[in-house]
Design a protein around this nucleic acid. Structure first.
Length: 216
DNA sequence: CTATGATCATCC
DNA sequence: GGATGATCATAG
């Protein structure tokens, strides 16, 4: 699979879409996950919409990441998973889904400037990344701060400003989506679902270590 | 609704 | 410009 991923370096999304027999949309406005689906399809990911790594047998999570090819900086934050708002008793960073998802990621950088037609965007060299102890410490600190707010009934006070590397933002189809959570005084409430995202400054560091290898 | 895949678009 | 808050598509 890694060899197959490496072989994608330099190809455009237009070329890959033809090869993978996946129709290319005019833009990503209505197909935000299209690039991810395309790469999964080409690389033979197994998980679909199940809760396990994309390549379960080898414990690798696949993530495409849009990059500005001049600055080499990510253009978007990276979604990790939906935040559990209830049933968190006994959950620690060590057993968290965030840590599980991020323990090993195959990042595939792709030119992502909106001015560039989708078909012309080039695929960069994949980067197999293992969460190191320093990074983990940072994420753990953010995760604990955020989970405290959730568990202590302060979910409605959460904004994307919380968390240095990892933060929470809405994750829903629309603003009226509701899910169960804990409100003030421990009272059950319904609120908008939240997702964990990696800030660009975190992913930028990962990408920077390898930027010389991709996108010319 | 929740999970997968993310980016859009507004506001500061 | 860039981050925050909002949103899109699909499967089960």
């Amino acid at each position: 699979m890694l060899e197959r991923a490496n072989s994608l370096f330099g190809y455009t999304l237009g070329e890959l879409s033809i090869y993978a027999k996946l129709e290319i949309p005019p833009n990503l406005k209505r197909d935000k996950g299209w690039i991810g689906i395309l790469l999964e399809r080409y690389l033979g990911a197994s998980a679909k919409n199940k809760s396990e790594p994309d390549f379960a047998s080898i414990g690798i999570e696949l993530k495409t990441i849009p990059i500005d090819n001049r600055s080499k900086i990510p253009l978007e934050t990276t979604f990790i998973c939906v935040a559990p708002l209830i049933g968190n008793s006994g959950v620690t960073w060590e057993t968290s889904y965030v840590r599980y998802k991020l323990s090993r990621v195959l990042w595939i950088p792709i030119e992502g400037q909106r001015t560039m037609p989708l078909a012309m965007r080039r695929i960069g060299a994949p980067l197999l990344w293992n969460l190191n102890s320093k990074e983990e410490l940072h994420l753990k600190s953010d995760w604990e701060e955020l989970m405290d707010l959730i568990v202590l009934g302060k979910v409605e006070t959460i904004t994307a400003h919380h968390g240095e590397m990892l933060h929470l933002r809405p994750k829903a189809s629309h603003g009226k989506s509701l899910t169960a959570a804990i409100g003030k005084f421990g009272k059950p409430i319904l609120t908008i679902p939240l997702g964990f995202y990696l800030r660009k400054k975190f992913t930028a560091k990962i990408i920077a270590r390898y930027y010389r290898y991709f996108l010319l």
